[in-house]
Computed example of a mutant assay.
Amino acid sequence: MNYLKGPQRIVCLTEETTELLYNFGEQGRIVGISSFTVRPELARKEKPIISTFLNAKIDKILDLKPDLVIGFSDVQSSIAKELIKKGLNVWISNQRSVNEIKSFIFQLGSLVNAQKNAEDLISEFEKNVLEMSRTINQWEKKPKVYFEEWDDPLICGIHWISELIAFAGGIDIFENFSKGRKAENRIIDDSSLVVKKDPDIILVSWCGKKFKIDKMLSRPDWSNINAVKNNYIYEVDSSIILQPGPASLFDGLKTLHDIFKNWS
Rank of each mutant, 00 (worst) to 15 (best):
V236I: 15
R181G: 00
L4T: 07
N137D: 14
V112I: 10
E46R: 08
K179Y: 11
I201Q: 06
S238W: 03
G245P: 07
T37L: 00
I202N: 06
T255G: 00
S123F: 08
P40S: 03
G170F: 05
S223K: 09
P66A: 02
W91F: 12
S123Y: 03
D189C: 11
K209R: 14
V204I: 15
N94Y: 03
D190I: 00
T37I: 01
L111H: 04
G87F: 12
P220G: 01
R44I: 11
D221C: 05
I201P: 08
S78N: 14
P40E: 04
L121V: 09
L64Y: 07
S218N: 13
S78D: 15
L64C: 01
A247M: 04
E26A: 14
N128F: 00
L121W: 04
S93K: 12
L111T: 14
F104D: 14
L164H: 07
A43E: 10
S123E: 14
E41S: 12
K142E: 11
N226K: 15
H159Q: 13
S248D: 05
L253C: 14
F260V: 06
K215Q: 09
A166E: 15
Y22E: 02
I122Q: 04
I101S: 07
S239D: 12
I188E: 00
I158D: 08
S239T: 12
P199R: 04
G32Q: 03
S77C: 03
I122Y: 03
G245M: 08
I92V: 10
T14M: 04
G32E: 10
L54C: 00
S97T: 15
F167D: 13
I84H: 01
I79Y: 06
P66T: 01
F104M: 15
C12E: 10
F211V: 15
I161Q: 12
E26S: 14
E163R: 02
L64V: 03
E100S: 06
S178I: 05
S78E: 15
S93N: 12
S97P: 10
A114W: 05
A43D: 07
Q8N: 11
C207F: 08
G170W: 08
L42S: 11
A56M: 01
P220T: 04
A247K: 04
E15G: 15
D258N: 15
I241H: 06
G32M: 05
K197I: 03
I58C: 06
E41G: 00
N262K: 14
L164P: 05
F250K: 10
D190G: 06
I122G: 06
S248L: 02
N55T: 13
F177V: 01
F211L: 10
K179C: 06
D67R: 06
R134F: 07
E140I: 02
S223V: 03
S34N: 14
H159D: 11
A118M: 03
R181Y: 00
R39T: 12
I158W: 13
S78G: 04
D237F: 02
T255R: 15
K102A: 01
H257S: 05
F174G: 03
I233K: 02
V129I: 13
R186V: 06
M132Y: 13
F174S: 08
K261M: 04
Q76I: 02
K45W: 02
C156Y: 09
I259F: 03
W139L: 12
R96H: 13
L68A: 10
K144P: 01
K5P: 00
A168P: 01
L54Y: 10
K254Q: 14
I187A: 03
F211Q: 09
F106D: 11
R39L: 04
S238K: 13
D189G: 15
A168I: 07
V75E: 13
E119W: 00
